[in-house]
Amino acid sequence: MTVYMQSTLELRAGDMTQFEAVMKDLVALVEAQGWRLITAISQISGRLHTAIDIWSMPDLGAYERGLTALRTSPQFPDMAKALAAAIERETVVFGVRAGWVPEGRE
């Protein structure tokens, strides 16, 4: 059963160039483990400097496989520093497809 994950990232104000570069690398690493980034949203209202990532995964086990791939990557120490510098708070929630979504949509 497909599992969806929403990751809400409350970011510190500042230059996001390094954060965005790290996120591109992160996406590549975890997608190789079954994650699929459906979309990423950068808020333009509400709390600015907030990003929301919506992911799909074939199962909850893919979440752990993705985290393991990140932690064991040679890039991880540098990635972790850049993410820690940019992210003030992260909230992760998991869910399944709601029954009211029209057929044929993700």
Rank of each mutant, 00 (worst) to 15 (best):
H49T: 06
L37A: 04
R47M: 04
L67C: 02
S56Y: 02
L60D: 13
V27R: 15
R71Y: 14
A51F: 00
I54D: 00
M23A: 05
P58S: 06
V30N: 07
E64S: 13
D59R: 11
T72I: 00
L48C: 02
T39N: 04
K81S: 04
I54R: 00
S45T: 11
D53M: 13
K81L: 09
I44L: 12
T72Q: 12
M57Y: 10
K24M: 09
E31M: 02
Q33F: 08
S56W: 01
W55A: 08
L48A: 06
K81N: 06
L83V: 12
W55M: 09
F76N: 09
Y63A: 14
Q43R: 14
A86N: 02
S56D: 09
R71H: 13
P74A: 05
Y63W: 13
G61I: 01
A62W: 00
P77L: 01
V27Q: 02
A82L: 11
I54K: 03
T68S: 12
T39G: 13
T91K: 02
E31I: 00
Y63R: 07
M57P: 08
I44K: 13
A32L: 02
A80T: 11
E88C: 05
A32H: 07
R89W: 05
T72L: 03
A40Q: 15
A86M: 03
D59A: 14
A51P: 00
P74H: 06
Q43P: 05
P77K: 04
D25A: 12
A40Y: 12
K81R: 14
R89M: 11
L26V: 14
T68M: 05
D25W: 02
E64C: 02
I87E: 08
S42M: 02
P77A: 07
F76C: 09
R71Q: 15
R47H: 07
I52Y: 06
S56I: 13
A84Y: 08
I41Q: 04
A86H: 03
G46F: 10
T68E: 14
M23T: 10
Q75T: 01
E90C: 10
M23H: 10
E88S: 10
A69G: 00
L37K: 14
L70V: 11
F94E: 01
S56A: 14
T91Y: 03
V27G: 04
I52D: 12
A80Q: 13
I44H: 10
R71D: 15
E31F: 05
V27H: 10
D25Q: 15
A62P: 01
M57L: 15
F94N: 01
I87A: 01
A86Y: 00
L60H: 13
L83Q: 12
T91V: 15
R89N: 12
A84F: 04
P58I: 09
I38R: 07
W55I: 05
I54W: 00
L70T: 10
L26M: 07
E31K: 09
M79F: 03
V93Y: 02
T39Q: 14
T91L: 05
R89D: 02
E31W: 04
V92L: 15
H49K: 05
